[in-house]
């Protein structure tokens, strides 16, 4: 009975975002039927993969009641670091990818430990980390990115097996991991922590460990997104700019409450997908790129206002 009630609640939490997504997909089908060719659909998923991965990572942090404002700068830092370390040498590709994941781990661990053990609000911790990463990367490279990525590295972002891009396979892996994590004991711990940290702590939930792991997951997922984004485009300081707010927007759009304890990781990833579909649709409709952010602003305000109304009634 209780699992049935839980399931019903889960579906209702997912419903609004599914409704928005399906509506947008329907409009796309009318205006641009070619969008549904397997090749262009896969190309869309490839483009959307980094944001969906970032949203999944941000979900862990938000559902535990925190924020991660450092992911955008982390993506930039990772790409710049990769280019400098690889410096065109193919034999360095895999070691550097390992270093990128490792760097993400360290940044996430630092965010988590400072937030939990030193009791610094995560907003401030990750804002500080954002300043530190941006400053450090500029200092290290002297103001402009150096080095180059190899073809092997870019392959992950660019190439495909058959018609399926690597990026989509990586997205599928990350999504599966995220879903399995939320079904595990860790997922329940995380939800309990975000719902009421005090109650969770008093009932013996390892609150500190759960929050630290959430930050690590967010940062490692950002490293994965950086690997894909590095493959998509050139090396610049702008790769990750603003991604933290896009990821948070996506998660909130999925109906996950800021402050923690509510919402599913599926909904968060659907939120990211919805944002990307929305941008595609705006392109198709010929809305200029400049208005993109205005529409994003309207959508997020509207979605959250509707969500707040539903939760009150």
């Amino acid at each position: 009975m209780s699992s049935l009630a839980l399931r019903a609640r889960k579906v209702s939490a997912r419903q609004p975002i599914l409704l928005i997504l399906l509506t947008l997909l329907f409009v796309l089908a009318v205006r641009q039927p070619e969008f549904y060719d397997p090749a262009s659909l896969l190309a869309f998923l490839k483009r959307a993969a980094p944001l969906v991965i970032l949203a999944a990572g941000q979900y862990f942090v938000i559902v535990a009641g925190d924020f991660d404002l450092s992911v955008g700068s982390l993506v930039t830092a990772e790409v710049v670091i990769a280019a400098r370390l690889i410096d065109g040498d193919p034999s360095m590709t895999w070691p550097v990818i390992a270093i990128m994941i490792g760097f993400g781990l360290v940044v996430g661990l630092a965010n988590g430990l400072i937030t939990t053990l030193l009791h610094v609000p995560s907003f401030i911790t990750t804002l500080g980390m954002y300043l530190i990463l941006v400053g450090a990367v500029y200092t290290w490279t002297g103001g402009s990115p150096r080095g180059a990525l190899t073809e092997q590295f870019r392959m992950l972002g660019r190439n495909s097996i058959g018609i399926v891009p690597y990026a989509v396979l990586i997205l599928a892996c990350v999504a599966t991991i995220a879903l399995l994590l939320m079904r595990s004991d860790f997922g329940k711990t995380l939800l309990a922590t975000g719902d009421n940290p005090r109650t969770a702590r008093l009932s013996g939930v390892p609150v500190v460990r759960a929050r630290v792991i959430a930050f690590i997951l967010s940062a490692v997922f950002a490293a994965v997104a950086a690997i894909l984004l590095g493959g998509f485009g050139g090396v610049s300081f702008q790769v990750g700019a603003g991604l933290e707010f896009s990821a948070i927007t996506a998660v909130v759009l999925g109906g996950v409450a800021l402050g923690g304890g509510r919402g599913t990781v599926t909904a968060a990833m659907l939120g990211a997908l919805t944002l990307e579909v929305l941008f595609t649709l705006l392109n198709v409709l010929g809305v200029s790129g400049a208005l993109k952010s205005a529409v994003q602003g309207l959508i997020i305000i509207a979605a959250v206002a509707i969500g707040a109304r539903r939760s009150r009634s």
Partner: peptide, 18 residues
Amino acid sequence: LKINAFIATLGVGLLIKG
């Protein structure tokens, strides 16, 4: 509308940015 301040002001900021 009971929108979280973070989201409300981020949204309004995006509107102005657009």
